[in-house]
Simulated assay, not measured.
Amino acid sequence: MNEIENLEHLLADFIAAVHRVEWKPPMAVMNFFPTNCCSVASFFLGNLLQARGLGKWHIVNGVSANGNHDWLRSESGIRIDATSHQFGVEPFVALGPSPLEETFQPQQVIALTRWTQAHRDAYAMLLPELPPRESCSPHFEGGS
């Protein structure tokens, strides 16, 4: 498997895990995944990717006349959007611009370090629902 395929598998595992958790306040918004939880999901997935040694990631916030949307971008230019299906676009991993960047113009970059203690606590609820790190491709173990 190549890098994109490995990230796609992790994205699918992440989405399945999100649906298995019974989310409590203040992260109860995740019970409505993918609707209105792009920021929280991006913090969770971005930190998961970095914890597994899959590169450096940050959140891109895009704005349209109807609102905003967040997705992940790596230092190498890969985009991952775990909540794009709320806009009729399948969740994706892609090298290059997000299919939603025409609708949501990138306005700011948000560091993953800006997550709150509430994010960290909820992330800890998600981790047991994910496949163990050992199930990642050896190609990515320890890489950055």
Rank of each mutant, 00 (worst) to 15 (best):
residue 11 L to R: 13
residue 108 Q to C: 11
residue 98 S to Q: 10
residue 142 G to D: 06
residue 52 R to G: 05
residue 84 S to N: 05
residue 66 N to E: 14
residue 92 F to T: 05
residue 118 A to T: 14
residue 30 M to C: 08
residue 101 E to V: 07
residue 49 L to A: 08
residue 31 N to Y: 01
residue 72 L to V: 07
residue 42 S to G: 10
residue 135 S to F: 03
residue 141 E to S: 09
residue 15 I to C: 14
residue 91 P to V: 14
residue 24 K to D: 05
residue 34 P to D: 02
residue 53 G to Q: 09
residue 140 F to G: 04
residue 125 M to W: 08
residue 52 R to N: 12
residue 82 A to F: 01
residue 136 C to M: 10
residue 59 I to G: 00
residue 37 C to D: 11
residue 16 A to Y: 08
residue 25 P to N: 10
residue 65 A to N: 09
residue 63 V to E: 10
residue 20 R to P: 02
residue 85 H to I: 09
residue 37 C to S: 15
residue 143 G to P: 01
residue 106 P to N: 04
residue 34 P to S: 08
residue 83 T to S: 14
residue 73 R to K: 13
residue 66 N to I: 08
residue 112 L to V: 08
residue 87 F to T: 02
residue 59 I to H: 03
residue 131 P to R: 14
residue 10 L to W: 04
residue 63 V to H: 04
residue 73 R to C: 04
residue 12 A to P: 03
residue 18 V to Q: 03
residue 10 L to C: 04
residue 140 F to M: 11
residue 120 R to T: 13
residue 48 L to V: 03
residue 56 K to I: 11
residue 119 H to G: 02
residue 130 L to A: 03
residue 108 Q to K: 14
residue 5 E to M: 13
residue 36 N to L: 13
residue 113 T to H: 05
residue 92 F to P: 06
residue 81 D to S: 11
residue 88 G to A: 10
residue 41 A to G: 14
residue 122 A to Q: 04
residue 80 I to W: 01
residue 63 V to P: 02
residue 143 G to Y: 00
residue 107 Q to E: 12
residue 63 V to C: 06
residue 89 V to P: 07
residue 72 L to P: 01
residue 118 A to V: 07
residue 22 E to A: 01
residue 70 D to G: 10
residue 16 A to F: 06
residue 118 A to G: 14
residue 128 P to L: 05
residue 49 L to I: 00
residue 6 N to P: 02
residue 40 V to G: 00
residue 113 T to E: 14
residue 132 P to H: 14
residue 130 L to W: 02
residue 19 H to C: 12
residue 30 M to G: 01
residue 93 V to F: 03
